[in-house]
């Protein structure tokens, strides 16, 4: 934990990035098959990877 106060950008950049990735994935698979499906799995899957990473990571 860091002691300095964070700016809104610092707080929201990670959720914002994951939100944009999710949105890409949600729309991607609608547009096409094949490569579009692949993009959709990777981007939506990234949210799950982030959860797994921080849940399993030993912290303070």
């Amino acid at each position: 934990m860091s002691s300095n106060r964070k700016t809104l950008w610092q707080i929201f950049r990670a959720p914002l990035l994951l939100g944009l990735l999710s949105l890409t994935g949600l729309i991607g698979a609608l547009v096409g098959d094949g490569l579009f499906d692949l993009i959709s799995w990777a981007t939506l899957g990234s949210a799950l990877a982030v959860i797994a990473w921080y849940w399993a990571k030993p912290t303070v």
């Binding site: 002691s3 964070k6 990670a14 959720p15 982030v50 030993p58 303070v60």
Partner: peptide
Amino acid sequence: GLVLYAPFMRKLDFGTVRRQ
């Protein structure tokens, strides 16, 4: 919930889970 995330995370790094 998203709005409350801002004051809650003021001093926390993204992904902080304090399990101890």
